[in-house]
């Protein structure tokens, strides 16, 4: 949150108005260019079975990621890649605020989307909107968070990783690495899934302390982690729940002159490099590319072939541990935004 937002009124010259208009026009053109590929005509032979819906499938992907978050960008890439390959039109939208996210679901219902993919960081807030989508006959796949409520709301399947299980895995791995006191850094105040990760780590590890930071302010993240390390010298491991925060934590550990090891959830190119160079102990990868790719595939199969995947159980995309032993293989894929 920046505090120096100011609104200033100044003389609005004609030139400025013209420039604004030009900017608007340019933005519109960009939009037209960026909407994604046109659907490929259904290729191959094969007669369409009677009764099956035909035409272009439109899938709305609605996440709770903040714009610019590298994690959700990979999900988006996955969904769009599946869309390109299968001839499905994918509309990706995101809102971190649960009420706004519920409205995006309503919006997709109003648009009569052919399928909805939604991440449920706050299932209660999305309940009515998701139910309305299901009642309107739109198949829903939940992703990432909200696994425990997915079936209750009528979703055909859930694709994600169990946050608690992943947290336990992190705790175990840290314990095996001989660590004794862990700092767990929570970067979004309202996200229940992040708390479950720290809880999981606590369950498997024991001594885990939580630290609350605001991901939109990296300077603050770094100085708070540094502060926590300075206050408690016995902390010998920092567990972050996001790659951007991991980079901040690595700097903070260095600045504090601490010998704590840093481990993180989720991958990006920086994390890969840091693992390669030994600055990060390991990363738990939930392979979120699949959380974008698979739901689009599932919805396409559901429409064209009435397939459901998982048999009422969630489809797990993680956790996979990425450490020095396998970092080179994974690293080559992270650079292009698919891991």
């Amino acid at each position: 949150m920046t505090s120096n937002r100011s609104a200033r009124r100044g003389p609005a010259g004609r030139r400025r108005v013209g420039a604004a208009a030009a900017l608007a026009a340019a933005a519109t053109l960009l939009a037209a260019g960026c909407t994604g590929p046109a659907a490929a005509p259904p290729g191959g032979g094969g007669a369409t079975p009677p009764g099956a819906a035909t035409g272009e499938l439109r899938v709305a992907v609605i996440s709770h990621g903040t714009p610019g978050d590298s994690f959700w960008d990979v999900v988006k890439n996955g969904a769009e890649a599946a869309g390109r390959q299968l001839g499905v039109k994918v509309d990706y939208n995101a809102a971190a605020d649960p009420a706004s996210q519920a409205r995006l679901v309503d919006n997709a219902v109003a648009q009569k989307a052919g399928g909805i993919v939604v991440s449920m960081a706050n299932p209660d807030a999305l309940r009515d909107s998701v139910r309305r989508a299901v009642d309107a006959g739109i198949p829903v796949v939940t992703i990432n968070s909200g696994e425990e409520r997915s079936q209750e709301f009528g979703a055909i399947t859930h694709v994600g990783q169990s946050e608690g299980v992943a947290g336990e895995r992190a705790g175990e791995t840290l314990r095996r690495a001989g660590r004794t006191n862990v700092l767990c850094v929570i970067h979004e105040a309202g996200n229940a899934g992040l708390n479950q990760r720290c809880e999981g780590a606590r369950k498997a590890f024991g001594s885990v302390r939580d630290l609350q930071v605001d991901i939109s302010n990296p300077t603050d993240v770094q100085s708070r982690i540094k502060g926590a390390l300075g206050t408690d010298g016995s902390i010998d491991a920092v567990l972050t729940l996001n790659p951007q925060v991991a980079a901040n934590a690595v700097s903070a550990v260095r600045d504090a002159g601490s010998s704590a090891a840093v481990a993180t959830f989720d991958l990006n190119a920086d994390v890969i490099n840091a693992i390669r160079e030994g600055r990060l102990l390991f990363a738990l990868d939930q392979q979120q590319y699949l959380q974008g790719y698979l739901p689009v595939t599932f919805l396409k199969l559901y429409r064209d072939n009435a397939n459901t995947v998982g048999g009422g159980r969630p489809v797990l995309t993680g956790p996979g541990v990425v450490d020095k032993s396998n970092v080179d293989t994974v690293g080559s894929y992270a650079g292009r935004g698919t891991r």
Binding site: P98, A102, A189, G190
Partner: peptide, 8 residues
């Protein structure tokens, strides 16, 4: 929404 998030 029958729930409130602390950061809303």
């Amino acid at each position: 929404y029958t729930s409130v998030q602390a950061n809303q």
